[in-house]
Computed example of a mutant assay.
Amino acid sequence: MTDAMGAAPVTKTPWHLWVVGVVSLLWNAFGAFDFVMTTTRGEAYMREMGFSQAMIDYYLAMPAWMWGPWILGVWGAVIGSILLLLRNRLAAPAFGLSLLGAIISLIYGQFINPPPLTPEMAMMSYMPWVIVVIAALLAWYAWTMGNKGVLR
């Protein structure tokens, strides 16, 4: 539907978009921080995070092809969060790419080459699932807001 001037009507931004946008940006900013620290400081950062030597060796031996899903997952989510706050319709595809990266990472880390988890790091086995669920919810939310005309 258009107004008398032929322009599409402006949809009021719901309050929850700002909450979801800010919370998702904070969540995804930690993922970006972790990515940058892992790629720039490597073993020293992982040791500070409490990783065992076996876990450090596991991550340092990550196959080169896994960089693609990791980059998609992390930076797609950050860009999606920013686009959501800007009410840009490209937030949904950005979150979709992030979800794809998270799913590929989950499949690799859970089924193809699981990490050597110690009892102290057992929680790490759940994090890929949590990340995929959050990525799916963010993609769904952005898609829904786009369909409602909130995102331009």
Results as ranks from 00 to 15, higher is better:
2 T>K: 14
5 M>D: 11
5 M>R: 14
6 G>N: 03
11 T>E: 05
20 V>F: 10
21 G>L: 09
24 S>C: 08
27 W>L: 01
27 W>S: 00
28 N>G: 05
30 F>K: 09
33 F>G: 02
34 D>I: 03
34 D>V: 05
39 T>F: 15
40 T>M: 07
42 G>N: 06
44 A>Y: 04
45 Y>G: 01
47 R>H: 13
47 R>P: 08
53 Q>F: 13
53 Q>V: 12
55 M>F: 01
55 M>V: 05
59 Y>I: 10
63 P>C: 03
64 A>Q: 11
64 A>D: 11
64 A>H: 09
65 W>G: 10
65 W>C: 10
66 M>F: 07
70 W>H: 11
71 I>W: 05
76 G>T: 13
76 G>Y: 07
78 V>E: 04
78 V>K: 08
80 G>R: 00
81 S>A: 15
82 I>E: 02
82 I>Y: 02
83 L>N: 05
86 L>Q: 11
88 N>S: 14
91 A>K: 13
91 A>S: 15
98 S>W: 03
99 L>S: 02
102 A>L: 12
105 S>I: 10
105 S>R: 07
115 P>I: 12
115 P>W: 13
117 L>P: 07
118 T>D: 01
120 E>N: 08
120 E>Y: 09
122 A>W: 05
125 S>K: 10
126 Y>N: 13
132 V>G: 07
134 I>F: 12
141 Y>G: 06
144 T>K: 15
144 T>C: 11
